[in-house]
């Protein structure tokens, strides 16, 4: 920086250096513009409707209808097939609960793959909502577990298998931390994400004690023929890069009275699902009669996902 010059020479110096300065400024602006070059690789840009879309809870039924049709159009443009995208609402008097039988689970991971197929997760990189952990008998220390086991056949002697997915907590740490209310718990107990509202800060992912949430680090890829065309807005509509997703108890199935895909595919009957408010439901029976526990009870999340033993 220059020292304070004597008054008479002041103007000429500042004019000369100003000229030099503006050349430098122009060079700076040019450098910044050159920096933006990768933008040319940007595929379909965000439409005005996408950009201005309101939060799920602010959408009136007619707005929602427009959004659903727009998403159908977007999927059709991208995949060449037109899906049905609906907005299923929770049923009155229903609160869903999941129960998993640790005595029976053999760790075959059929649930993991059925979930991916049902819920239109990205295949490359593959996003999985369920992680099955192989635990040595005699401990519940998760650090001793192995999520990447790959033996010839399962089950292996001396181990038990613990599938973990979103626990749909009654006191969820993830919804509390979201700065934009993009995730919340529905009246039927399912914690959902508005993928079209999420800003992708990943605070919920840091808050979850069950490693249940997944982030789209890149644009998801799904082969055209693998797309599940029965879609729901809060459930399995295809996601885009930069947003969170996670298990939603197959909202597009369970809200019309069907079982989640992971339950249907389970060959050992380890997975039980139902309405806890109905005293005659299977899950109500299990919670009453079996030795049931929840994972990490000490963190106070009050999961709606229970583990139990048969024998």
């Amino acid at each position: 920086m220059i020292a304070n010059p004597p008054p008479e020479s002041r103007d000429s110096i500042s004019r000369r250096s100003f000229l030099r300065g503006s050349t430098a400024a122009a060079a700076g602006v040019a450098a910044m513009a050159a920096g933006l070059a990768p933008l040319r690789k940007l595929g379909e840009s965000i439409s005005v409707d996408q950009f201005l879309q309101q939060h799920y809870k602010e959408l009136k039924p007619e707005d929602m209808d427009k959004v659903l049709r727009r998403i159908e159009g977007e999927v059709e443009r991208q995949y060449g097939v037109r899906p049905h995208v609906r907005d299923y609402k929770p049923m009155n008097g229903v609160e869903y609960v999941y129960a998993l039988n640790l005595t029976r689970c053999v760790g075959c991971r059929k649930c993991v793959h059925a979930c991916v197929a049902e819920n239109n997760q990205s295949r490359d990189p593959e996003i999985q909502y369920i992680q099955v952990i192989k635990m040595p008998n005699g401990t519940f220390d998760m650090e001793k577990g192995d999520a990447h086991y790959a033996p010839e056949s399962v089950p292996e002697k001396g181990f038990f298998y613990m599938p973990v997915q979103c626990h749909q907590c009654k006191n969820p740490p993830c919804t509390k931390v979201c700065p934009v209310k993009a995730t919340w718990t529905e009246p039927d107990g399912i914690t959902v994400i508005d993928y079209n509202w999420c800003i992708g800060c990943r605070y919920c992912e840091a808050a979850c004690p069950y490693f249940a949430r997944r982030f789209n680090f890149s644009e998801p890829t799904i082969p055209k023929d693998k797309l599940n065309l029965e879609m729901s807005y809060l459930g399995n509509q295809p996601r885009h890069k930069g947003v969170m997703e996670k298990c939603h108890f197959c909202i597009q199935r369970t809200r019309v009275g069907r079982y989640p895909a992971c339950l249907e595919v389970c060959p050992t009957g380890s997975r039980k699902f139902g309405n806890i408010l109905d005293p005659n439901s299977e899950v109500a029976h299990i919670l009453r009669e079996k030795r049931v526990f929840v994972l990490k009870e000490e963190v106070g999340t009050l999961p709606r996902f229970f583990y139990y033993f048969d024998v």
Binding site: I46, F51, H55, P179, V180, A182, W197, C198, I199, G200, C201, R202, F215, N216, K241, G242, V243
Partner: peptide
């Protein structure tokens, strides 16, 4: 942020 263009949600 994964979705910086949605900053207005904040």
């Amino acid at each position: 942020l994964g979705r910086p263009e949605r900053f207005w949600h904040l």
